[in-house]
Write a protein that binds this DNA or RNA. Structure first.
Lengths: 274, 274
DNA sequence: CGTTCGTTTGACGGATATCAATGATTGTGG
DNA sequence: CCACAATCATTGATATCCGTCAAACGAACG
């Protein structure tokens, strides 16, 4: 993992015992209620230092780089930018979770990625990107660092370490995006959803005694938009898996109880027997 | 477009008149029969100079960079590397067309991108890429330039212009990959196929008097693997569109006759009436 | 001329999108 | 503190797109 959370995890809140009166559980995520984190300079520097982007940067350079970024805090559910708006700033996610979605057929959006702290997004340096290609919405309270895209290009040229870091970061994003394309090729909803959840667990899974909890507060429509399916199908599938003991899930959270079974499902072997 | 073909287009062969005895036409692509192009040093340099990667590089630097690359020619249908093999070399496509595919559910591959000259592929610089994530196969005769990935990292650090170019190139690839994710979210095969063809036309469309010819020799299974569907569905859809006068298509080639209609289809308005 | 590959077309069944209604949870304002 | 609204999640019934199986056809190649 390129980056470890700097926000205290509020450890205690992870006590999930089954509420007897309900098949659901209290949302066990430690992120759901994260308030918009303020980003003082020292925190900013720590955040940047941990990103793939600026990992290779020395102390003095880091300060120089940090100075150019401005920070902004967002509530959960806020829109950072919208697809089609002029792309002015390159952003680095300091804390929280952000989802990137693109409009597909009018009316439906597809979630192309979920970002963890350290990710770069917004006005990526590329040839013909005058406008944002995606819409960025916060899934939790977030701290976002930003820099005018022009200025970032200067940084690239000035600090070769930044350029190398950016290359690495973009390489990761590209790898992940292509994996998403491959995932979306699976023919059944079961396979796509299983693969999507496993990929999320890889990046944002909090391993617990009886399940791996996805530290991303995704609602059913979000999951649907990641799997090219509908809210209802996601719900049905999760219910079925819950009955089989493969996952646990509630309002805006999912935990993976049986990773091996999910892998089997993703590969087209196993599951489904109603 | 970041790059213009350096292989002579053999212009004359584009005379496609409808063969009366058949609904198909002679393959009108000027690439299908491209023999594996030899890549002498001067050509190599010209190729590299035109890529986004090395666009900003000065003359002396360019020579230095070029010297480190080795060239190799491939026949059409050759495998450059396979997913899972140790990722040793970063490659730059000099001439021809390459498709990248990832194994999805066992047995089915998904085409995650089609590469044009100038594209980088293979061992992309990213954090944890020990093995190739995709399989690269040539769709035409190709000239491929390669460099050990370690050596490329040195290049990145040594020439900041290379690093900036790489960032731009990766940004383009990422943009395209995310667009592919969004495309694959459309629910009907018609929409996905239309969007895919339009995206291809944008990059590799040769505009003619009565249609835009896709200069990529994609077979039906290839198109199917780009749209997450089956050969049969692609064939049926193309046949329907052919009857409506929206496209023309034959063995390993597709021409778009009515772009506006295709856009309407991709957006979920229009088409289908058998 | 025969073989092979790429493509086309048909028939059928199943997975899933769609429509619709209910239930659970959260937050708000009285 | 409670009632209400709003959001999110679940479940059912139905229609249909499309994946699967099967077969035939045309083009290319030796």
């Amino acid at each position: 993992m390129a980056y470890r959370e700097y926000v205290p995890d509020e450890g205690g809140r992870t006590d999930r015992r089954p509420t007897p009166t309900s098949c659901r559980r209290d949302a066990p995520l430690s992120l759901t209620d994260a308030r918009p984190a303020p980003c003082p300079a020292t925190v900013r520097r720590r955040v940047l230092a941990r990103t793939t982007l600026f990992a290779a940067l020395g102390g003095a350079d880091l300060v120089d780089v940090e100075r150019r970024f401005t920070a902004r805090a967002y509530d959960a559910g806020a829109t950072v930018f919208r697809a089609g708006e002029p792309a002015l700033r390159l952003l680095v996610l300091g804390a929280g979770r952000v989802k990137l979605s693109q409009p597909a057929c009018p009316g439906t959006d597809v979630v192309v990625d979920v970002l963890l702290p350290g990710a770069i997004f917004g006005a990526l340096p590329c040839e013909t990107c005058q406008t944002y290609n995606e819409t960025a919405e916060t899934l939790t309270g977030c701290c976002v660092l930003g820099i005018p895209s022009e200025e970032f290009r200067q940084l690239l040229r000035a600090h070769s370490a930044v350029a190398v870091g950016t290359v690495d970061s973009l390489g990761d994003h590209l790898t992940r995006a292509r994996a998403a394309v491959a995932r979306s090729g699976a023919d059944t909803v079961e396979q796509r959803l299983a693969a999507t959840l496993l990929a999320l667990a890889e990046r944002a899974g909090q391993v617990g005694p009886d399940m791996t909890l996805l530290q991303v507060p995704l609602a059913r429509p979000d999951l649907a938009a990641m799997c090219s399916t509908t809210t209802e199908s996601v719900s049905r599938t999760l219910s079925r898996w819950r009955r089989l003991g493969v996952v646990e899930a509630g309002r805006r959270w999912v935990g993976l109880a049986d990773l091996e079974a999910l892998r089997a499902i993703a590969d087209g072997r196993g599951a489904r027997r109603e």
